[in-house]
């Protein structure tokens, strides 16, 4: 029996090899019908080293990212650890409905999105401009110094940054108001008015992250051919013109991709900074989804994993929708897109 099947499989294999050989031989333009499949197999064969390279990363993703994804099911169940994920009762969309029926649902979602939009609109261009400006700085040591200093606040913990911010913005004792008063601007309680929350959050975010965000653009800029700049200079182009026509296009792919990714994570407004900056007077703009989830956790003293997972899933779905929209737009408007 075994001998028979071995013979059989050998025959099949030889035949297949023959077929592939024939296809290889016949590879070229102008072939009818079978060209698509042939082309596919050809490409796969030609790119076999690339597939080999991909194997390890793909394996990692499968094991560490896809396998645990069944945990998202918790959102559709009443999770009971004693029964495990599979044993917990199925409740369908109950948690989603619960979330949407919250009295403050719209306010929370809109606060989250608005905060993220502010952060993006103001926070996104600054690192780009910073990178472009730094790139043009002639003095190398100064350039390096500025880079190192501006990227450092990123590493100071949020607790400390918000602490500093609170002190800075204090109407009576804070440096900012004292400075403004010097110029005749009256003192304002920036943290005590809901209307100021988004600007303060955004600008302090720029303060903290502009330097760090500019790194990727600086790396992209460093690959710009110096000869191009020299040629343009000989032609009489000003710094601004050179930046616009040489530097900017060079980093445009990075800009677009990063913008797509940014919009695709709009709902992920972090919890820590918002929570620390929140107070009773600015909740109308500062209550976001992540702080709500935190408060639910504290109140119940017993983490509701199902509810939190459902909300997280809700966020993800919105993010993906945004992502698809932006990516499609990018595809149509430029050469760069995520897929």
């Amino acid at each position: 029996m075994q001998r028979l099947s071995r013979a059989f499989s050998n025959k099949v294999l030889t035949k297949m090899k023959g077929m592939i050989g024939v296809m290889k031989f016949h590879a070229g333009p102008g072939l009818p019908k079978k060209s698509k499949l042939r082309q596919l197999l050809l490409d796969v064969d030609r790119g076999r080293q690339l597939y080999l390279l991909m194997m390890l990363p793909v394996a990692y993703i499968l094991i560490f990212k896809y396998q645990p994804m069944y945990g998202a099911l918790i959102a559709f169940k009443d999770f009971d650890p004693t029964a495990g994920i599979w044993g917990s009762t199925w409740v369908g969309l109950k948690h989603f409905v619960r979330f949407i029926e919250q009295p403050k649902f719209f306010q929370m979602v809109s606060n989250t999105l608005m905060l993220a939009l502010w952060d993006s609109i103001i926070g996104f261009p600054v690192p780009i401009l910073l990178a472009l400006a730094l790139n043009n700085v002639a003095h190398k040591k100064y350039k390096s110094f500025v880079q190192t200093v501006t990227y450092a606040p990123h590493f100071i913990s949020t607790v400390v940054i918000v602490g500093m911010l609170t002190q800075l913005l204090h109407p009576r004792m804070g440096a900012l108001n004292l400075l403004f008063q010097h110029f005749g601007v009256p003192a304002v309680s920036y943290l005590g008015k809901a209307g100021y929350f988004r600007p303060v959050y955004t600008l302090s975010g720029v303060w903290q992250n502009a330097g760090w965000g500019s790194i990727i653009y600086l790396a992209a800029l460093s690959s710009v051919d110096v000869e191009l700049h020299q040629a343009a200079q000989i032609d009489g182009a000003s710094i601004v013109q050179r930046t616009r026509h040489i530097d900017l296009p060079a980093i445009m792919p990075s800009i677009i991709i990063l913008l797509i990714l940014r919009i695709g994570s709009l709902m992920n407004v972090g919890f820590e900074k918002v929570f620390l900056m929140q107070n009773q007077l600015n909740l109308t703009t500062s209550e976001v989804i992540s702080t709500y989830v935190y408060k639910m956790g504290i109140m119940s003293q017993f983490p509701d994993y199902s509810y939190a997972t459902a909300i997280g899933l809700f966020n993800s779905v919105v993010n993906v929708v945004l992502l698809v929209i932006v990516n499609t737009t990018a595809k149509k408007a430029s050469e760069t897109s995520l897929w």
């Binding site: 619960r98 919250q102 009295p103 403050k104 107070n279 009773q280 007077l281 909740l283 109308t284 209550e287 709500y292 408060k295 639910m296 109140m299 119940s300 509701d304």
Partner: peptide
């Protein structure tokens, strides 16, 4: 009632404290 109660607690107390401050 626990789940329902916690949800109500969070929103009510938040509203009360916020209104008080306002």
């Amino acid at each position: 009632y626990v789940e329902e109660f916690n949800g109500l607690s969070v929103s009510i107390q938040s509203y009360v404290n916020q209104s008080k401050a306002m």
